[in-house]
Computed example of a mutant assay.
Amino acid sequence: MESFSAIPVFVAVVECGSFSLASEQLGVTKSAVSKRISQLEAKLGVQLLHRTTRKLSLTEAGERYFDYARNALTLANEGEDAISELQDKPRGRLRVNAPMAFGRLHIAPLIPDFLREHPQIEIDMMMDDKVVDLVGGSFDIAIRIGKLPDSSLIARRLAPCHSVLCASPAYLQRWGTPKKPAQLVSHNCLYYSYFQGGTEWRFNGPEGLESLVPRGNYRVNNSEALLEALLAGLGICQMPTFIVGPAIADGRLVALLPEYRLPQHAIYAMLPGRKHIPAKIRVFLDCLLTHFDETLPYWDGH
């Protein structure tokens, strides 16, 4: 029976590629993970992993065992999902991944009421502007913004994601208001490092599609840091309205180039493809779908 309990540990080590990352995913120490793998190898009488200072790799026996172990773990998880689906009260740990700014501004405020309504659920939320592997990171649900790659994940649209070009009144008073995208070359354009649209800003206007590569003295991987720079009058930036909507509504920022449309995206809840959706995931997804508007989200009310 000890070998069965080591299967999730072994699968996590192989999928993560290291003992340390597997320990973070499983919530145990690195030494505990190493010990479980050693015990499994001793029980089976074979070496499953080649260990070097730089990386781990499967032995021939490890490759063969991993296929069976992963299938066994999948079946066990599906069994748990099937049972969870029948539970009257959702329970268990729910792992959520969300972009930093959207998660802090629009997901985190929902958590207290959600947990009061579902006290037997424990939420483990990781906010990160980098796109993480939903399955490899063992997340139950993730928030994604932008164009979705083809995958086996289940996507539920939550809301549109509109973007605007904006700057503060103080910046525009000092440097002037651009009327066309081409005039942005003479402005300080701030830039989001993880922008999925590539290095160009694209505009669809009266004369068709126009694009330029923004130039400026500030590039950062966090949208809220860009918002602070905008409010301080540092430059012009392309920003999602779920961040700058309130500042535009109260006049702290000004939306620019109204005749030019920026590419539109959407905000999605992503779930791993599975036969049964556990109750803890289903009620959290219902919470998101109830809170957000697929047509006009509350941050665009202005």
Rank of each mutant, 00 (worst) to 15 (best):
177 T>V: 11
154 I>M: 05
237 C>F: 06
170 A>H: 08
141 I>S: 12
251 G>M: 11
163 S>L: 01
201 W>Y: 10
156 R>D: 03
155 A>T: 01
219 R>I: 08
199 T>Q: 14
174 R>N: 05
256 L>C: 06
171 Y>C: 13
193 S>D: 05
246 P>E: 00
153 L>D: 14
174 R>P: 01
182 A>I: 02
144 R>Y: 03
144 R>H: 06
261 R>W: 01
221 N>R: 13
197 G>F: 09
152 S>I: 01
139 F>L: 13
213 V>N: 07
163 S>W: 01
184 L>F: 07
261 R>A: 15
194 Y>S: 11
254 V>A: 07
167 A>S: 14
186 S>R: 15
220 V>R: 10
179 K>E: 06
158 L>A: 13
149 P>Q: 13
164 V>C: 14
249 A>W: 06
221 N>W: 01
201 W>R: 08
159 A>I: 00
154 I>F: 03
208 G>W: 13
226 L>F: 13
248 I>S: 13
136 G>I: 02
145 I>Q: 14
237 C>Y: 03
222 N>V: 03
138 S>F: 04
176 G>N: 08
244 V>P: 00
198 G>V: 00
194 Y>E: 11
135 V>C: 03
234 L>R: 15
251 G>E: 08
238 Q>T: 07
195 F>L: 07
182 A>G: 07
138 S>C: 06
235 G>M: 08
242 F>M: 07
253 L>V: 03
142 A>H: 05
170 A>R: 09
197 G>A: 12
229 A>M: 10
184 L>A: 11
159 A>Y: 02
224 E>M: 15
176 G>I: 02
173 Q>R: 15
197 G>Y: 10
188 N>V: 04
159 A>E: 00
217 N>V: 03
256 L>E: 00
189 C>I: 09
201 W>M: 01
234 L>C: 09
188 N>R: 11
134 L>P: 01
213 V>Y: 10
134 L>T: 13
229 A>G: 00
189 C>Y: 06
201 W>K: 06
237 C>E: 04
142 A>Y: 01
135 V>N: 02
215 R>C: 08
204 N>F: 13
